[in-house]
Design a protein around this nucleic acid. Structure first.
Length: 581
RNA sequence: GCCGUCGUAGCUUAGCGGUAAAGCACGUCAUUGGUAAUGACGAGACCAAGGGUUCGAUCCCCUUCGACGGCUCCA
């Protein structure tokens, strides 16, 4: 049996065991569904009285007890009538049975020990023997809607972790703890990058001097890459009359997410949830000759979305989002070339941080054209351009059927971080619809008005989200060029402070961000603090250094550089920053 | 939004019916100084906010706000 299948069967069997345990302890409970998942399994129940995490050990104990009598799963086929009789009081199971009948599939029951469940199969042959001691653990209780739909009843979901061996489970738990240590919400506070205020509101991060510095450095880097390709900066107001979004189609699609503003004169305005409609109006300010295209507008700016409060989380999901947005207005024939330029920018940018990228090709779903603007033929036309690009780059993209934006298909880029997790980051979108809505055009060689297309291109996507990913990817150890403090200078005693100040000035003149840790704390503690802030280089300045004129430097990786002259170190540092290491 | 857990000084936490405690951080002073020193003194919290129960509430109940984990894995 394949390893993967075995693990799935193990987890699925445990889901059954969980249901068996729960039903024995709480006989009035209605069990619903219980699949295996990425790190274990879950089962959704409707309890008659609420349970909490505190009840898990009891359930887990019961599971182990029951397991002793679980030697084999037996399957038996039932008619719909028989099946419904068995689950007479369980409307969830009955709904499932109707569905199975509707699909023309067979109804099967699986029994193990004294527990029988509606199931399509996929279990261990002998649970008692195959489930290793200590290889599973009930993890937590959470709410989940029946079938994931918030219109349905909320059920109680019990999550369990499960692996083939106890060692693997322990390793997984240890990994989760490592991820927790890197949690950007904690590191962001420790490194003094951002904060939240209850008065300002949830999902609205406030940026400290250090955090702002990092944001600006990132944005400058994106700009540096864009500049080469002829982009120009633009700026727009953060609100607009409703009319703009009525024209673009966003009012319909986004109205639940919009922060709306009513003026004293009775007009309705909205905070912008995206920038493209504003940018179209910059393009639309005058008539263009084909000779002047493409027009490339870049604009790093905040957008505002009224996300559901329960969806908010640290910087990953916020209500004020800084997009490093850009829009290219060009002729259809130029789209591919422009697309490739952005492709280059995206790859250069992520390479610097050591992320590897995967691409997802998000297309329209022909079965649901009501979700999109415009004719299907036009969608096929623009999607073929993206396909050509993927072929040319010899990249096999993940299939994103139905994942397109409502105005056009896109390539989404997923960054794989140092813990192997995948995050959606950059996106390039090709849009024939908004130019249509706003009647954007140019005059072509024949003197005829020609419809143009529009490219949407965000490199970081959202600075907030990108930073949350970068913080966890690096565990706060930003590359030197991005570190708020690049060099800590630590004078051993007060009489070394003058030397420290001289050194500080030297750094300052070369635009190196240095910080002096003055002698009010003990030496050891100051070094510790500097390292705690993930400072790339810590220079300890004492008698030894003052006499020799050389420096002793502690590197962030734990190594030490001794007897290096200030000039030499400065050169090394400048080179490192230049190369963005 | 919904379900669950939670909200005590800047941070981490203790206390849990009789108006609050510790460590770190902070301030002053002293003694120190080569990898998280020591001592003394000091300042800092109407225990998230509002309402209720009670002779009395940080502790019990309700509401609001905020944080975290879930809510696309289908019998």
């Amino acid at each position: 049996m394949e390893q993967k299948e075995k693990l799935h069967n193990l987890r699925h069997s445990l889901a059954h065991l969980l249901a068996a345990g729960v039903l024995e302890l709480y006989p009035d409970t209605k069990n619903t569904i219980g699949p295996s998942i990425e790190d274990g399994f879950y089962y959704d129940f409707e309890f008659t009285s609420p349970i909490s995490d505190k009840d898990l050990p009891k359930i887990e104990k019961k599971m182990r007890e029951i397991l002793k009598s679980w030697r084999a799963f037996e399957s038996i086929e039932k008619t719909a009538k028989e099946a419904k009789e068995h689950f007479d009081k369980n409307e969830y199971k009955k709904e499932l049975i109707d569905e199975i009948v509707g699909k023309g599939e067979k109804i099967t029951f699986y029994t193990c020990g004294k527990f029988t469940d509606l199931c399509r199969g996929g279990h261990l042959e002998n649970p008692k023997e195959e489930i290793a001691d200590g290889s599973f653990k009930l993890d937590r209780v959470a709410g989940a809607y029946w079938r994931g739909d918030e219109k349905n009843k909320m059920l109680t979901r019990i999550y369990g972790l499960a692996f083939e061996t106890k060692e693997e489970l322990e390793k997984y738990i240890a990994q989760k703890e490592e991820a927790k240590k890197r949690d950007h919400k904690k590191l962001g506070k420790d490194l003094d990058l951002f904060t939240f205020s209850e008065l300002v509101g949830s999902g609205l991060p406030l940026w400290t001097p250090k955090g702002t510095l990092v944001r600006n450095l990132l944005d400058d880097y994106v700009w540096e890459l864009r500049k080469k390709f002829g982009y120009e900066k633009v700026e727009i107001p953060h609100i607009t009359k409703k009319d703009l979004y009525l024209t673009s189609g966003h009012w319909d699609k986004f109205k639940d997410d919009l922060f709306r503003i009513n003026t004293r004169e009775g007009h309705e305005f909205a905070m912008k949830p995206m920038n493209c409609p504003h940018h179209t109006q910059i393009y639309a300010r005058r008539a263009w000759s084909y000779k002047e295209l493409p027009q490339r507008y870049a604009n790093t700016t905040m957008v505002y979305r009224d996300e559901q409060s329960g969806e908010l989380s640290g910087l990953s999901r916020v209500r004020s989002i800084t997009q490093d947005d850009a829009h290219v207005f060009c002729r259809m024939g130029q789209a591919k070339e422009e697309f490739l330029k952005i492709w280059d920018i995206v790859h250069s940018f992520y390479e610097v941080f050591g992320f590897s990228l995967q691409v997802r090709f998000s297309t329209h779903d022909p079965a649901h054209m009501e979700k999109y603007l415009g004719e299907e033929a036009r969608w096929q036309q623009v999607e073929s351009i993206l396909k050509e690009i993927l072929d040319e780059k010899k990249v096999k993209a993940i299939d994103g059927l139905g994942e397109a934006a409502f105005y056009g298909p896109k390539l989404d880029f997923m960054a794989v971080d140092s813990l192997g997790r995948e995050w959606q980051v950059a996106t390039i979108q090709l849009d024939m619809n908004m130019p249509e809505s706003f009647d954007l055009s140019c005059t072509n060689e024949k003197g005829v008005k020609e419809r143009i297309v529009m490219l949407h291109a965000a490199i970081m996507g959202s600075i907030e989200r990108f930073l949350s990913i970068l913080i966890e990817h690096t565990a706060g150890n930003f590359p030197t060029w991005l570190s708020p403090t690049q060099v800590a200078i630590i004078p051993v005693r007060e009489n070394h402070e003058d030397e420290a100040k001289k050194l500080f000035e030297t750094f300052k003149q070369s635009s190196i961000r240095a910080e002096i840790f003055s002698a009010d704390d003990s030496l050891g503690k100051r070094i510790h603090n500097a390292k705690d802030m993930k400072t790339p280089y810590v220079i300890v300045l004492g008698d030894k250094e003052v006499t020799s004129g050389n420096l002793t430097i502690e590197n962030r990786d734990g190594t030490k550089t001794e007897n290096i002259s200030a000039e030499e170190f400065l050169e090394k540092l400048k080179k490192e920053i230049e190369e963005k290491k």
